[in-house]
């Protein structure tokens, strides 16, 4: 971290990246919306992907990140 660590933003001190912080803020704004717009905006915050880290040229355990609430894979 830089020399200005003391003046650093509180969320960075807590170990968050800017991306995590800004996405969290976006989620809060979406949660504050009223109904017809809320459902529409909700679709913009779902995440689904799977990843595997490799070691020595071999894939390790596969991790699935899924915030669709069980509908992942059925939609397309």
């Amino acid at each position: 971290m830089s020399s200005s660590a003391a003046a650093s933003a509180y969320w960075r001190v807590a170990g968050m990246t800017y991306l995590k912080y800004s996405n969290l803020c976006a989620d809060m704004v979406r949660a504050a919306l009223k109904e017809p717009a809320k459902a529409k905006a909700k679709a913009r915050e779902i995440i689904y992907f799977r990843q595997a880290l490799w070691k020595d040229g071999q894939p390790q355990k596969q991790v699935i990140t899924d915030t669709t609430g069980g509908s992942g894979g059925k939609l397309s």
């Binding site: 991306l19 679709a43 779902i46 040229g57 509908s71």
Partner: peptide, 25 residues
Amino acid sequence: DNIYGTVADTNKVKITFPEASAIAE
């Protein structure tokens, strides 16, 4: 030997910015 990791199935549901952010992290 150069592969650090793989990501797949990003298209299963619509691509969203949070999804891209999660991969970017």
